[in-house]
Nucleic acid binder design. Structure first.
Length: 164
DNA sequence: TAGGCCATCTGGTCCT
DNA sequence: AGGACCAGATGGCCTA
């Protein structure tokens, strides 16, 4: 299942910073698809009038503005994806039967989480059949433990782990 | 070396 | 207008 290519948290940080260096340095950037800016560049055959010259300046400014907006959007996207990755690794750590140092791809994590939820659901149904046992977990958002309101979703990982 | 996985960039779309 | 979200493209890294 695990192909070994999924990285641990430590590795994530390492590769991330490595990539960050690469990407922040700009020039070695991989070639992209169509880049309009590249093609709207000044054409060689131009003796410009002063007006065209001013035009060029404002165009350059527009280009720079667009580029900085793009860079900002890229940074936001990186941050967003980092949040997503962290959520995945948190989800992974809340899976029982999965040792902390196990390499799991995101897809594997989703699959295991899904099957674990199924498993928990079955347990609950069995509980309901026996009907003697009040389950400690309130199964409505935000999944509080009954009688222990200070516990939140972050503790359910440990709860799941204890279930294994 | 091929294939899987991931991070990043990018442009489009939707929402506030 | 600007930000969030999304999906496609791409290149790098790693393993079998």
């Amino acid at each position: 299942m695990s192909t070994g290519s999924a990285t641990s948290d430590a590795e994530d940080d390492e590769t991330r910073s490595r990539r960050a260096v690469i990407s922040s340095e700009g020039p070695p950037r991989r070639p992209t698809r169509f880049d309009p800016d590249r093609f709207s560049e000044e054409d060689p055959e131009d003796e410009r009038s002063a007006e065209q010259e001013r035009d060029g300046v404002s165009r350059t400014h527009q280009k720079e503005a667009r580029q900085s907006q793009r860079n900002a959007a890229n940074a936001r996207e990186r941050a967003r994806m980092r949040v997503l990755s962290k959520a995945f690794s948190r989800l992974k750590t809340s899976l029982p039967w999965v040792p902390a140092d196990t390499k799991l791809s995101k897809l594997d994590t989703l699959r295991l989480a899904s099957s674990y939820i199924c498993h928990l659901r079955q347990l609950l149904q069995e509980d309901r059949l026996q009907d003697h046992f009040v389950h400690p977990v309130n199964l409505t958002w935000p999944f509080l433990l009954s009688g222990r309101p200070e516990e939140d979703i972050s503790s359910t990982g440990r709860l799941c782990g204890a279930t294994a």
